[in-house]
Each structure stands twice: as C-alpha cells, then as structure tokens.
C-alpha cells in the first residue's frame, strides 16, 4: 500500500458514497446512467469473486465487500425504488457492445487462460469503458447536476491516482501488471474532456453545461 493507492481508493469510495447520497437525499436518480451502474456492478462481481479464494488483507476484503454491496444497492435504487425518476430515454448508449468487446479481448489477451483470470481481465477491460454510457448521457442532455459532476470527478481521479501507484510500484517493488496499467490509462483518458470542464466550470461555481 502506498499513498497514491490509498488516496485513489478513498476517492473511489467517496465517489460511490456521493452517488448514493445524491440519489437518497433527492429521492431521484435523474441524470444518472443506470447502464453505467449495471456495468460497474458487473465489474465488481467478476473481479471480486476472489473474495472466496484469495485473502489479501482485512482492508482489501472490507473494501471489496463494500464496493459490491454499494453497487447492488445503487442498482436497486435506480431500477426499483426510484425507477420513476430514471431517465431511460436519455440512457441510450449501446452498452451491450462494450460487454461483447471486453469478453473477446479478455479471452484473447490475458495473463493466464483460466476462468478466474479471464473474469478478472474482463472486469479490468469493462471498467475502463464502463463510464461511457454516463458520459454519453451528459453529452445528450448537455448538462449535469453539480453533485453528479463531483461524483464523476472522484470516480475519474481514482484510476488516475492508480496510475501514479503503478509507477511507484514499478520502481519500488518491481511490480508491473500491464493489463491493468494500459486499461487504467484508457479509463483515465476517457475522463479528460470531463476533467477540463470540471476544473474550468464546476470548480468556479458554475454548472456543468456543455458548450453548444
């Protein structure tokens, strides 16, 4: 554990909590892509199956359980409890394509051709692109509530901080997992436009509206 990874994890945790608070307080999931949340739930489910086979630390286990539970809770809020507020007609990204491509890539490019390893690899590839339905939705509506943009900023920062963690681990521990590193770079890259808008608008107290 190093400082980049810890802050990255905290940022990830903060993102999930911000999202749950936003939905719970406003009794609404308006502006949130249910498809992105489904993809994140699939990511956690496939990746954290190793809860049963591989113990790393109390910290690791606790975080995994929290991420799994919170992602299922989010899905419940969006598709059941507050489903009347879900903007289905704006959440139109063809996310099936992301799943198909991630499955194919995981079968072709992995560290080891075993069930658990392919599921892990699939989760890494899928996570890299899971935010696309959400970003697409914002592009379509042209705006996002400020709390939604805080959520996205925290979520995007997490993988960016993990890149610093991977650089640190490469030099200090000789640890390199190039599947995670390359996917993490793609994942962080997808947020670049959003980061720019967040820093130039939201941080100055303006709303996140896209230039026409």
């Amino acid at each position: 554990m190093n400082v980049f990874r810890l802050i990255g994890d905290m940022s990830h945790l903060a993102a999930i909590i911000i999202l749950l608070i936003k939905i719970w307080r406003s009794r609404s999931c308006s502006g949130i892509s249910g498809k992105s949340q489904l993809l994140f739930t699939a990511v956690f489910t496939c990746r954290y199956l190793d809860l049963f086979t591989n113990f790393v630390s109390i910290y690791n286990t606790t975080m995994k359980i929290f991420f799994l539970a919170s992602s299922y809770a989010t899905i419940y809020l969006i598709f059941m409890k507050f489903k009347a507020t879900y903007n289905r007609n704006h959440d139109t990204f063809r996310f099936e394509l992301l799943i198909v491509v991630s499955v194919i890539l995981a079968l072709l490019i992995n560290h080891e051709f075993s069930a658990t390893e392919i599921l892990w690899t699939f989760s890494i590839y899928l996570e890299a692109v899971a935010i696309l339905p959400q970003l697409f939705m914002i592009t379509k509506t042209g705006e996002a509530e400020s709390i939604t943009s805080h959520y996205l900023f925290a979520l995007g920062s997490y993988r960016g901080l993990y890149i610093l963690n991977w650089i640190y681990r490469y030099y200090v521990e000789g640890h390199l997992d190039w599947i995670a590193v390359l996917s993490g770079i793609v994942q962080t890259g997808l947020y670049c436009d959003f980061f720019y808008l967040y820093i130039t608008r939201v941080m100055k107290g303006k709303n996140l509206t896209l230039p026409a």
């Binding site: 990830h12 990746r47 690791n60 995994k64 390199l176």
Partner: peptide, 10 residues
C-alpha cells in the same frame, strides 16, 4: 520485471 502473480489491488 515481475508480472503480478496475484491481484492485490481493488
């Protein structure tokens, strides 16, 4: 260069 032999990250 050591490739991760187990996944210890989240």
């Amino acid at each position: 260069i050591v490739v991760a032999d187990q996944h210890d990250e989240l």
